[in-house]
């Protein structure tokens, strides 16, 4: 499997003087193209920091992150923005939508900025994605007129507009009830099936069950990895997968 992300000994610290501590302490992680990876760990272990480092959203103090063949630490702000727009998609815990824009406008915003597609193509693509996500009826609604689960789906549609190579998720189901969370995970699994790499941070075992590989991070270091293999809803015994993951996590001290 080709590697889409290769990170080597990344260190990231916060704080000043004696208070300074390494949140990431020499982490090396490779992620294959088309892989579905979940990052788990206790609060404050550095999960989200790792996600931001791998996506170039945050700089690292030392070490390197190579994304799709480009060393992110060597890219300027504008080049990083281009990579983000053309090759990455982000889904956060809270739906990060702009209140000024309606649902459809939020979805198409990055593509309009990108300017590669025509207005017609952009609108058609957005409507197709919204239909797939089951939110086509929200098109003209304001952000304040949709539920949390619906807004998270809007965020996923927006993330998919640029046909990203990787979708990064930072606890994308963290603020949702279990039904909505399940629906969002199904949607991400669908996206993964189309060949998109998915990397997400979660503390929810049910969410991580659908990942091919689960990384456990503890005190800024990768403490272990759990290879679960590609998830297939039709054949796999979900409960067994979840049980195996839970057992492993318990061994890791989670």
């Amino acid at each position: 499997m080709d590697k889409i992300i290769v990170s080597d000994s990344i260190v990231k610290s916060f704080g000043v003087g004696r208070e300074r501590r390494n949140v990431l302490d020499g982490v090396s992680v490779d992620i294959g193209a088309g892989e579905f990876v979940a990052i788990m760990g206790p609060s404050g272990s550095g999960k989200t920091t790792l996600l931001f480092a791998l996506s170039g959203m945050d700089s690292v103090d030392s070490g390197s992150v190579v994304f799709d063949g480009e060393d992110l630490s060597r890219l300027g702000d504008d080049a990083l923005a281009d990579v983000r727009r053309k090759k990455m998609g982000f889904v956060f815990q809270q739906p990060t939508l702009l209140k000024n824009l309606n649902v459809l406008d939020n979805v198409i915003l990055p593509s309009v900025r990108d300017g590669t597609l025509s207005a017609l193509q952009i609108n058609e693509k957005a409507r197709a994605l919204m239909k797939m996500a089951g939110i086509e009826e929200l098109e003209t609604r304001g952000v304040g007129q949709a539920s949390g689960g619906q807004l998270q789906r809007v965020g996923i549609c927006r993330a998919l507009m640029g046909d990203p190579k990787v979708i990064f998720g930072d606890e994308p189901t963290g603020a949702l009830n279990s039904t909505s969370a399940g629906e969002i995970m199904d949607l991400l699994a669908d996206v993964h099936r189309t060949g998109t790499t998915v990397v997400l941070v979660t503390h929810d075992v049910r969410v991580a069950t659908k990942a091919e590989r689960v990384l456990f991070i503890f005190d800024g270091k990768i403490a272990g990895a759990h290879e679960a293999g590609r998830y297939d809803a039709a054949c796999d015994d979900v409960d067994a997968r979840q049980q195996a993951l839970a057992t492993w996590l318990a061994e890791m001290g989670f």
Binding site: L98, K99, N100, L101, N102, L104, D105, I108, L109, V112, R113, G115, A119, I122, N123, A126, G142, G144
Partner: peptide, 29 residues
């Protein structure tokens, strides 16, 4: 404040992409 944004609702990016995203966002705001 959770007050819904008022005004400018008819100005939509989906129907007005000629402006470009930056000009649109500035004006709409």
């Amino acid at each position: 404040s959770q007050e819904a944004p008022s005004g400018g609702r008819r100005v939509r990016l989906s129907t007005n992409q000629r402006l470009g995203a930056n000009a649109f966002l500035g004006l709409k705001d």
